[in-house]
Simulated scan of single mutants.
Amino acid sequence: MKTRAIGLMSGTSLDGLDICFAEFDKTDNQWHFKIIEAETIPYSEKWENNLRNSIHLSSADLLALNSDYGFYLGEKVQDFIKSKNISKVNLIASHGHTVFHQPQRKFTQQIGDGRAVKLVNSIPVVYDFRSQDVLMGGNGAPLVPIGDELLFSEYDACLNLGGFSNISFKKMDKRIAFDICPVNIVLNKISQDLGKNFDENGDLARTGKVDSNLLEKLNNLEFYNQQHPKSLGIEFCNQHIFPLLENIDSLTALATFTEHSAFQISNIFNKNQFKKALFTGGGTYNSYLIEKIQSKTSAEIIIPEKTIIDFKEALIFAFMGVLRMNNEINVLSSATGSSSDHSSGIIA
């Protein structure tokens, strides 16, 4: 039976709300998907500031923002449905926007109350996909590997280049997944110091010089020696990355951090001897970063059509919502480190 779902994703890089409307169907024990409509809604300056500063809010103000952002999501979905003349939607699956992510302390917080989304649209909503996994001893991330496993299994590895780079791949019949390193969350911040929202095509980094001393410090961070499963949040950057970049020329910082990201990503590729890897996420448009990665690995880098690059995460959250409504496994313990595979998400 075909299920039509809308997936919502707001990433750490704050470039906007991704909305993906897709149809899912299972035949001969194999899942298939078709993206029907997809759009990124850029955040207004007000909403970008609200979300960026949410980590500093009092408890009461954060609870208020959780509700406000839920209604914002609901209204954006309503606008999307009207503007695209969409007639039938079985469910909405919302990732929300991450404020806190501290699985070692048994919590993660994605704001955007799913009940508010449902009140606006009168369509079942699945939300808060991460908390259950964290309570079960997992990292609550990455969650996308279930989609890589069931929708994109023809690739040796699936790499997402977003605020952070994360990867998933099959190893000894288990889907392994983890965050590799920060990418756009750092590159965008440095670019903003230069008056740009991001480093388009990596053109700024291309003009900078790599600082070998800084590169060594970045590559020696303890996180890179830890075994998976492991995940990253803004806290890691605030504590370990940004202090190293203080008093460094911005172009040098961009060139060096691009080199660092390429090194860490290619290192994983070479260790696991991937032959073919699917690249998605906003960082895929950074041609300098892609060149750097390709120069360090023999793996074939597959860059798909634009819709998949931009909306794969939102697509997979829609898919996770479908699995949750069917009470099927949508989180893999081999990826997150939780005590078992499980079906996660609160249904409104």
Rank of each mutant, 00 (worst) to 15 (best):
I146C: 13
K170L: 14
K174W: 06
K174V: 11
D148Y: 04
I185L: 09
V210G: 02
Q110W: 14
A262T: 07
I309S: 01
N213E: 11
L214H: 02
L135G: 10
S13T: 03
G163Y: 03
T307L: 09
L14G: 00
L194V: 03
G112T: 04
G138N: 10
S131A: 13
R130H: 08
F223C: 05
I167L: 15
S58R: 07
N85I: 11
G283Y: 02
Q227K: 15
G283V: 07
K209E: 02
P145R: 01
W31E: 10
N267H: 14
S333Y: 04
M320D: 04
R115W: 13
C237G: 08
E259Y: 01
E154R: 11
Q102T: 05
L254P: 00
A93T: 12
L151F: 05
K209P: 00
K217P: 00
P103L: 06
I55R: 13
A64H: 09
G162C: 06
N121F: 15
R115N: 14
G281M: 02
I293P: 04
M136N: 11
I190K: 00
M172A: 15
G162S: 07
N49V: 00
G208H: 08
D173H: 09
L63P: 06
Q227H: 14
L214G: 02
Y72T: 11
N225C: 14
T3F: 12
S59R: 08
N201L: 07
E300K: 05
N53R: 10
F317L: 07
D133G: 14
A262D: 04
L245A: 06
I265K: 08
K275P: 05
C237R: 00
F33K: 05
A205V: 01
N85V: 12
N201Y: 03
I111W: 06
N270E: 07
T3C: 13
V183D: 11
R130N: 10
S344R: 04
P142E: 06
K106P: 13
V183L: 08
N90D: 15
K2W: 09
F319N: 09
G147K: 07
N166V: 09
N326M: 13
L245I: 00
H342Q: 15
I92Y: 04
D133C: 11
T336S: 14
I248S: 00
F33C: 12
H260S: 12
L221M: 08
A177P: 10
F178T: 12
L221I: 02
A60W: 15
F198V: 02
D128Y: 10
F71N: 08
N201W: 04
F242W: 15
I347Y: 12
D156C: 02
I146P: 15
W31I: 05
Q264G: 02
Q294I: 15
N201H: 06
M9S: 12
L232N: 13
L214I: 03
F107H: 06
K276H: 11
A60T: 14
L63C: 14
G112P: 03
N326R: 15
Q264C: 05
V120E: 09
K230F: 01
S298I: 10
I36R: 13
G195S: 07
L194N: 10
Q239L: 10
A314W: 09
V134W: 09
V125K: 07
R206V: 01
I309H: 03
L63S: 11
N188F: 04
G140R: 03
I302G: 04
V126F: 06
P304L: 10
A253E: 00
I6W: 05
L14E: 01
I81S: 06
Y127L: 14
F242M: 13
N213S: 07
I329Q: 11
I36A: 03
D15Y: 14
L254W: 00
